[in-house]
Nucleic acid binder design. Structure first.
Lengths: 298, 298
DNA sequence: AACAATTACGGAATCCGTAAAAATT
DNA sequence: AATTTTTACGGATTCCGTAATTGTT
């Protein structure tokens, strides 16, 4: 059997080209690397190096061996993190999402759930959901798309519904719902990190102006001392920040947007092998899913 | 980094369930395995075992680790054989086929080619062509189907043409070609290992009887002292056995079968990365491809 | 002269086996 | 009593670093 540290020496040598640099990079002495490569060659049983007293280089076979060794080492490292992640996931359940809404909700739910959850603070790209589940980085990932893979299941957990927060004296503020069309031409303050909603509102609201804010505090300032409308959703309004924002401002009313494109289905994806363990948590979350507006228009 | 021998101990333990049996299977002592699993657990940094003074068993995390370890070890072993195969293939070019015809031809061509080739003595299942190429088990595989993969190319090298060897006094023996339809109702001697031709002749020749022979010598005996027709191809007739068989028997004539289904295209598949190295060999083989009958009917 | 690889030698770490101990069935 | 795991101890292997050697640029 071939020891891992020899494979690593080989891959580093393939990069550096000399044993001296290899030794330096691995914090060992160069004779150690010399012996290592001799042993490796012996273990493989084929000639991996071309030696010229002063110079040593890889044969074509050696080149292949180095490439394959790198793959094996990657697999080995991936195995370790996967196992560590799995062990971690047995104590706290790590959750993530591809869109902001569910993350805000989950952060809010933290503590009220029976399960001990840990909510990610960054987003997972949709195309990496399968990877992140397979290596147990997250046990549950919320997204607006179903995932189709033979060891993964996606369960519909609820809807994220876009709503607009209007000055109470705007004529629209008296309606129980508004449409994108009715919002056309207005100017809005929006938070930068709102995921897919960003493109949706830009596509759907004609002639609108959007003033993006990265910082939540300046967002709060601007919305407080101006009459510009801004967006929330049934999920984001559970955030203490938005709650405070709306509550403190008696001059604002929140109105749902009735268009289909303002309703986003949210799915929870997980490994089928974990289904049994995660089912109670998922139904717990579904039960606490904010369905209706908390602030009804006057 | 985690050493390979520890992973192997883990996988064996996952199978046997006790450290004692693990030690026995690996030809080491139990205390050695005990220490090994302690070290492994320390290397992973998570709890892999549940210990009860007299008994040790895998935690769920340990179960996962064992499964993943087995995968890594497999990958490592595959790497070694791949590298060894590659090195071997740089000295002699290992060839194989999914059908008998090309193998017979290649065995015949051995020595007349510039390249130093080594012809397999068993067939490769079509679905394993990609594997056998990828791990460098064979450099070139001949089959009657093209292979579609992004790192593999299939080149058409020639046709295998079925022919029937008839008693000279049969009325069909005077024709320059025959059809399957003209052979209907006859009784044939056939060698068992003729690959796809077996089903073709059974499907195409109505009311025929086929007497299969496993042994070549008994095949020779029967065809010599009986008037039963038998089959050859432009490739199989290059075999010394068939050559002798036909040559010694002045009472036989070989007639090609004209049906489309009696013509089989042969492709040579190889790794694209090896194309440059294999091109001369392939064109060499194409040049020596037997196109015409060697024994024309009278 | 500077650099790179190999060899030689001594020390240190570790890996192993034997023996003994502890605990369970 | 038999089985299994763990610890303790001593030996052997091997892996490493320093120093010296050889050969090249």
């Amino acid at each position: 059997m071939i020891e891992s540290y020899l494979l690593e020496e080989l891959t580093v040598f393939a990069k550096t080209g000399t044993l001296t640099q290899t030794a330096a990079q691995l914090n060992v002495t160069q004779p150690s690397v010399t012996r290592g490569m001799q042993k490796l060659e012996d273990d493989f049983g084929v000639k991996l190096f071309e030696r010229q007293s002063n110079r040593i280089r890889l044969t074509p076979t050696g080149e292949l061996a180095a490439k394959e060794a790198a793959r094996v080492l990657e697999a080995s490292a991936a195995m370790v993190t996967k196992v560590q992640n799995y062990d971690h996931s047995r104590h706290v359940t790590p959750l993530a999402a591809t869109v902001p809404g569910p993350l805000i909700l989950l952060n809010q739910l933290q503590g009220t759930l029976k399960e001990n959850i840990q909510v990610a603070d960054t987003f997972v790209p949709t195309e990496k959901i399968a990877n992140a589940l397979n290596n147990n980085q997250y046990a549950l990932i919320f997204s607006n798309q179903e995932i189709f893979a033979d060891n993964i299941e996606s369960l519909y957990v609820g809807e994220e519904r876009l709503q607009v927060c209007l000055d109470q004296f705007m004529y629209l503020a008296n309606q129980s719902t508004v449409t994108f069309d009715e919002l056309k031409g207005l100017s809005f303050i929006v938070m930068r990190a709102i995921g897919p909603w960003g493109t949706i509102i830009q596509d759907e609201i004609a002639n609108a102006k959007f003033m993006s804010q990265d910082d939540r505090d300046s967002f709060a300032e601007i919305t407080k001392y101006s009459r510009f409308p801004f967006f929330t959703t049934n999920l984001s309004q559970s955030d203490p920040f938005f709650k405070e924002r709306v509550k403190a401002d008696a001059d604002r009313v929140t109105v749902p947007i009735s268009n289909d494109s303002a309703q986003m289905p949210i799915y929870a994806s997980y490994l089928l092998s974990q289904k049994e363990r995660l089912s109670p948590l998922i139904s717990d979350i579904r039960q606490q899913w904010p369905t209706a507006l908390q602030n009804k228009p006057n």
